[in-house]
Simulated assay, not measured.
Amino acid sequence: MRESAAERHDRLLELVRGRGSARVSELAAQLGVSPVTVRRDVEFLAGEGRLDRVHGSVSWPEAARPQSAAGTAAGTASAPGTTPTPASRELVIGMLAPHATYYFAEVIRGAHEAAAAAGARLILRISDYRPQEDAGRAAGLLAAGAEGLLIAPGWKEPDDPVEHGAWIAGLPVPTVLLERRGVPGRELDDLDRVCSDHGHGVLIALRHLLGLGHTTPLLMARADSPTAIAVRSGYRHALDALGLKSPGGPIGSVSAETDPAGFERAVQAVRAAVAANRATAALVHNDVDAIRLVQRLAELGVRVPDDLALVAYDDEVAALADIPLTAVAPPKREVGRHAAELLIERLRRAPDGGTGGAQEPPRRHVDLLPRLRVRASCGAPADTLRASGSAHS
């Protein structure tokens, strides 16, 4: 795949950041492009203030260098023998997210709000769920001046944390994982992280449906994201915790846009389970699939909630369905906020950050609990819907 200009800029910035300065000819050789291309890139990056140009060479901007490395930057000189106070300058934190819409829009918003409240600047890069490019995106954030990183890798497959995650543990700045977990016993398990407890989210959904008198709810879920994988795992654990037997195993779902035939197979499997009285309730990941499922089941003569009570997982657009969908709502905004606050605390309490050599606090694994927002699709009594609407929305 041809390298984009943004990806080349990231590599160029990382080279200059590592060396401090470099000649255009050297950068062209390292990047495998022509000097003309490098000069154009340098002109663009210098115009953005991300590089300095000096007589055929480029250098890392003095203002972007950490205080500990650059000494006293212009306009911020310290008295001899003193260390600049971290709170006296703007911190820059970088955030790598797999997407900027749907689920992660709220995570990003929460991180941005926390950064602004702390007087820090948040800069963002998006991986588009290409985990093989995450390291380059993170390098671009560092090259842009990020002093700490919030990382939500673009993992999709169960093996991605091992195949595409080891680089995170070697990052040279404080790092917080968000909505992602490392493999127990491996490098990433030692990092700070802030996550939604999706297992708890599944458990509260199943308990609610059982409390309404339904048989063991079935699960229809994708397997193409860490959230989907966590929902599947949470379903198995919830069945064990509640002493239930699976009504035939999870029904695998796929995107209706990319694989309409595969999605139709999942719909037909749900319809067959209802027709055979194997299920009267279902948990569906995600909102979009749940809305499409309700529409297609109606065409097949299966009514929600009369024939099938339904709970969606994510609560991004669940309330906008024709029949408003009861949904598990992970605390997305709070995940971003807590992760940013944790990272900023790390940066301001670092031993070399003016705190007099204070000992680094313990690493933290923070799990935030999802909430259940009860609407019409689960068949709850009207008084329950009203109470839930005031308590949870």
Rank of each mutant, 00 (worst) to 15 (best):
A312N: 00
A312K: 00
Y313L: 01
Y313A: 00
D314T: 14
D315L: 02
D315E: 06
D315Y: 02
E316G: 11
E316L: 07
A318F: 03
A319D: 03
L320Y: 12
L320A: 14
A321Y: 02
A321P: 00
A321F: 01
A321H: 04
A321N: 09
I323E: 02
P324D: 05
P324M: 04
L325N: 00
L325I: 10
L325S: 05
T326E: 00
A327V: 09
A327Q: 01
A327F: 03
A329R: 04
P330Y: 06
P330L: 04
P331D: 08
K332W: 01
R333I: 04
R333P: 01
E334F: 06
V335Y: 04
G336C: 11
G336K: 02
R337W: 03
R337V: 08
R337I: 07
R337T: 09
H338S: 13
H338I: 14
A340H: 03
A340L: 06
A340E: 04
E341D: 11
E341T: 11
E341P: 05
L342A: 10
L342I: 10
L342Y: 02
L343S: 06
L343I: 12
I344L: 15
I344W: 00
E345Y: 09
E345S: 13
E345G: 13
E345T: 14
E345R: 14
R346D: 04
R346Y: 05
R346T: 08
L347R: 08
R348I: 12
R349D: 14
R349N: 15
R349C: 10
A350V: 08
A350L: 09
A350W: 03
P351Y: 11
P351L: 06
D352A: 14
G353K: 04
G353I: 04
G354L: 03
G354M: 02
G354E: 04
T355V: 14
G356N: 07
A358R: 13
A358T: 11
A358Y: 08
Q359Y: 10
E360T: 14
P361T: 14
P361F: 10
P361G: 10
P361M: 12
P362C: 11
P362N: 11
R363T: 14
R363L: 08
R364C: 06
R364I: 09
R364K: 12
R364E: 11
H365G: 09
H365Q: 13
D367P: 07
D367C: 13
D367Y: 13
